[in-house]
Structures are given as structure tokens and as C-alpha cells.
Design a protein around this nucleic acid. Structure first.
Length: 275
DNA sequence: AATGCGTACAACCGCACGATC
DNA sequence: CGATCGTGCGGTTGTACGCAT
């Protein structure tokens, strides 16, 4: 204790270590950010308590660590998660559960905090509103079936926003491996040739069939028959962000619908109320 | 214009674990 | 071998901001 007191200046002596300076908490200011950044560039990361004292910051070491890792570090990505990132998060969460840091390591520039926040604020609300028993696999299938049409709508919105064309009814039909052949026959009888679109994410591929005829789009490999709502939700869970090239090809005009129904045809919720 | 509400995100807290003394 | 420290992780809270009423 005496040795520590000798080696600390009055300003940054940490009460945790026996000092009497009140620690700051709450939002960081630019001066603090600068001090931390400069000291890390000089001395490197790690030994956070020492670093905090060395920098003259009235912060705990762990507070400094958090600020650096979640905000100040140069490779930190800002802004909304991309579609690919969201899909990857869902896939990895279905594999690993709430292992945020493990998931974050698969998304360069994203922190565990980012992903945790995303999951809590967006996904859990979504799950709650679905009123479904949470099951990772089912949920992944569910968000896949719901979100891909939404992405398509988003693509349309991104090219024509804010002046939407007047919406026209759109319906989906379910194609599974068991009815694949009959669906093909049905399409061919209507002289409709579906376009096959594959959405690639780092972990897997989402397959879908898109038919641009009569505003009819059919999704393959999804478990729910889906109609798309009229809301302005523009990503999986309703926020707007930019599209990547991966899904540029998925544009489909004039999306509108009623809600989402399950396999028995019971309405689960109204999208308009959700987004 | 004021207020209330929901959302997104920054930050903190408790706990666990490994390394070092 | 136990105590302490540093660090990582997941859960939770606080708050700024935008939007609807």
C-alpha cells in the first residue's frame, strides 16, 4: 500500500488499490478517449489497471478495457449489421447459443456487445412477439422464411424509395421436398419458369425459388407459408440499412400481404402491428 | 411544442477462470 | 496451496435519440 502510494500521483490514485480519488463512471468524454488511445499506442493492450493509472484516467482497468475493445479499437465496425452478419449470427447462435464472444470472433469488427445488444433488442422481441417456444433450429428456419422475402422487399425499397409503386397483392406457396415435383408441374402448366436464387452466407446457403410472374414468389426450403406485410420494415426486424451485392439479384417489385400464417393456416400475428 | 414511448447502444456489474505470487 | 490480480464473458442497466401522439 505504501509502495503504491509512492508510485502514484495524486490524480490517478485508484481507490480500489487503496487510493482516495473517486472513480469516474458513465459515458466517456473525448479527453479520456484520447488519453486511453495514446497510452495504448505507447504501451500496448493489457494490464488495464496499470494502464488506467498510467494514463491518469479515473477509470477502472476493466472500464478502460471495455471502452477500448468495444469502441476505440481501430477495426471496430460502426453502424447496422449487414444481412450477411445477421444471418451468420442466427446460424451461429443456433449452434452455440449465447456465446457472444465466440460468435463475435466470426464477425470481424463486431464486438460481443454489438451482437448481444442486437440479439436482445431485436431478436428476443421478435421471438416474444412470435409467441413461439424458442427453438434455435425452428427459429432459424422461421427467420429465414420471413426475412428473405423482407430482404427482397427491402431491395425494391432501396431502389425506389421513397416513392413506392402502388402495392399489389402477392402470395407465396410452400415448396418442400415432398411437393417439389407437383409444384414444378403446377408452374410449368402455367408457363411459369421459376428463377432459382441462392443466398449465400458464410455458414450455409439459403435456397429459394423466385418467380416474377403474376407477383407470385415461391420460397423453397421454408417451413411456413408466408405473406409479406405492408410495413416499412427494411431488414429482418424492421430497420433500414444498405444492401450488399449478395442479395442485389433478389429484387422483386410490389410487395404486400396480410400476415404470417403457420402450416395449419392459423394467423400468428399481423406484420403491420409488428413493424 | 410538449410529452411519452420504443429502440439502439454504451457502459457497468457479477461471476468464473487462469496465472502469478 | 490459498490469496490476489487480470481478464473474459454474459446479463443487466442507463441514456440518448427518433418517432408518434
Amino acid at each position: 500500500m505504501m509502495i503504491q502510494a509512492k508510485t502514484q500521483n495524486k490524480c490517478n490514485f485508484n481507490p480500489i488499490d487503496g487510493g482516495n480519488v473517486e472513480l469516474r463512471s458513465g459515458p466517456w468524454n473525448p479527453e479520456e478517449d484520447n488519453l486511453l488511445t495514446q497510452n495504448i499506442s505507447c504501451h500496448g493492450e493489457g494490464h488495464w489497471n496499470w494502464l488506467a493509472k498510467r494514463a491518469g484516467l479515473k477509470r477502472t482497468g476493466r472500464s478502460c478495457r471495455l471502452r477500448w475493445l468495444n469502441y476505440l479499437k481501430s477495426n471496430i465496425k460502426r453502424g447496422k449489421l449487414t444481412i450477411e452478419e445477421q444471418l451468420l449470427i442466427h446460424e451461429l447462435h443456433s449452434l452455440w447459443g449465447n456465446k457472444w464472444s465466440k460468435i463475435a470472433r466470426q464477425l470481424p469488427g463486431r464486438t460481443d456487445n454489438d451482437i448481444k445488444n442486437y440479439w436482445r433488442t431485436r431478436v428476443q422481441k421478435y421471438i416474444h412477439q412470435l409467441r413461439i417456444e424458442f427453438d434455435n433450429k425452428k427459429f432459424l428456419e422461421k427467420i429465414t422464411s420471413d426475412s428473405i422475402p423482407r430482404l427482397m422487399k427491402m431491395e425494391q425499397s432501396s431502389t425506389s424509395w421513397p416513392s413506392h409503386p402502388s402495392p399489389q397483392p402477392l402470395s407465396f406457396s410452400l415448396i418442400t421436398s415432398s411437393n417439389m415435383e407437383s409444384e414444378k408441374t403446377r408452374y410449368s402448366s402455367k408457363h411459369i419458369v421459376p428463377d432459382f436464387v441462392t443466398v449465400k452466407s458464410p455458414m450455409s446457403e439459403f435456397h429459394m425459388i423466385e418467380s416474377c410472374y403474376n407477383n407470385k414468389v415461391t420460397l423453397y426450403d421454408n417451413i411456413y407459408e408466408t405473406n409479406i406485410g405492408t410495413s416499412k420494415g427494411l431488414d429482418m426486424f424492421g430497420s433500414h440499412y444498405e444492401l450488399s451485392n449478395t442479395i442485389d439479384q433478389m429484387a422483386e417489385p410490389n410487395w404486400i400481404g396480410d400476415g404470417i400464417i403457420d402450416m395449419n393456416g392459423d394467423a400468428l400475428w399481423c406484420l403491420d402491428k409488428l413493424w
